[in-house]
Design a protein around this nucleic acid. Structure first.
Lengths: 243, 243
DNA sequence: CAGTGGTCTAGACCACAAG
DNA sequence: TTGTGGTCTAGACCACTGC
């Protein structure tokens, strides 16, 4: 059996070629790179493809353009770290810090939705929901208190006692075909609840950041309602903001 | 004198045409819109232009595409509010809430940069910086405690006592040609400092969100170092997160 | 003025979904 | 197989920059 080869688009290849060129020529910040016309000839592709590649490099803040002048190399980016604006699972976030993710299960329960859930998830008041409560750890250290809620559907015959899968995103994708495409998150500074203090052995005055989110799929349907309490001793919250 | 007319691109016009079409046909969520080929004929423009317009509508979450199937209308978005990922001045943020922005000046000072400023702004240790400290109000209510710092340059002969301009962004753009294009912000939950309590008449246990930011211009040079303490009684912090 | 990036056209082939 | 969106080509004119 042959492994499926990921076909890489031409623009991607051109992007890499241009990156190589910048490296090889050792171009310094603010120095100009060859014009689009020149790159078109150099690389033997159309201007469209060159512009696609340049657009990608501009998104990555490798280059910037000034109309009428040219395309220039940007400052060396210490800013490449992706921030909150990128939707990642908590497992991915913990791994991106270089930590080993772990999970301590608190429980899985069937409930009636709260008023806020009904509003934000577009539920009926007599719909049922399932709530997964976990503590996520990073290198064994208590990192996040997670409360994730999804709508109870007919495909869920019985509620599992526990989920083996480390990542909630992976579990929901594989078992229920739920795949979040974007989320709207409210950031709320907060002190731990009594429940959290009991389970997490933390100080009462420890500050947390609550990420109160609703996740949507590509079609814009709400899929997951989650309240994640992040220990700010472990995480830095970065947002890349664009004009 | 004639007001300079902003020439609107064709893709923009096409975008509006398509929006009108969706309204007129009263298309419901998840219903398919005409294919790109059909739109090309309907509107008498090239497919490139149609795709540009569709891309804009997809960004706005008005539409979504599925390869091989078609382009569809998204759920009605209550989610249109722009979040933290959009770089706005505090004046703009306050106005977007429908409040009237105001300013109480604490002072303007020349200082030596802190270690953190030297690192993040790429300064020398004997560079000078100028720090503007203000309280921003929303409908007269204390909203944000702002500490903005920029590098002292030769073009700044003397330090002003106060700045009339409401918006710091506008002031810096007009007086010093500084125009932030993006920013990297760290979000830190925090309690008010003694200084803040003195000036703002707030409770000691009032939770604030500190937005610790460095603003960069298009070329990637750091321009503004700012610490903005937001009163979470006044503001909700929303971030739109994308996969 | 010449050279740059920004926008637009017309046409082609490919990858994917559905009958 | 047909129709969809995804990618790519070749060529054109426009808007802005700097000489």
């Amino acid at each position: 059996m042959k492994i499926k080869e990921k076909s890489v688009s031409l623009s991607q290849k051109v992007k890499e070629k241009i990156t190589e060129y910048i490296m090889n020529e050792n171009l310094q910040p603010d120095s100009v790179i060859p014009s689009e016309a020149v790159l078109t000839e150099m690389l033997g592709v159309s201007r469209y493809t060159v512009r696609e590649a340049l657009a990608l490099l501009e998104q990555d803040k490798i280059l910037y353009k000034i109309q009428g002048k040219g395309t220039f190399v940007n400052k060396v980016p210490t800013h490449i770290e992706s921030g909150l604006e990128k939707l990642e699972s908590i497992t991915e976030i913990i791994e991106s810090y270089g930590y080993e993710p772990g999970t301590i299960w608190i429980g899985i329960e069937e409930n009636l939705p709260t008023k806020d859930m009904v509003d934000k998830m577009g539920l009926e008041e007599d719909d049922k929901v399932v709530t997964f409560t976990r503590i996520r750890t990073a290198n064994g250290k208590v990192a996040v208190y997670c409360v994730d809620t999804i709508k109870r559907t007919d495909t869920m015959e019985k509620i599992p006692q526990i989920i083996e899968e480390e990542s909630m995103f992976n579990y929901l994708k594989e078992k229920h075909g739920i795949e979040p495409e974007y989320a709207i998150a409210e950031i709320i500074p907060t002190l731990p609840t009594a429940e959290m203090i009991k389970h997490m052995k933390i100080k009462e005055n420890q500050l947390f950041l609550l990420l109160h989110q609703v996740h949507y799929d590509k079609e814009g349907s709400p899929q997951i309602y989650s309240m994640d309490y992040f220990n700010t001793d472990v995480f830095k919250f970065i947002v890349n903001r664009i004009r």
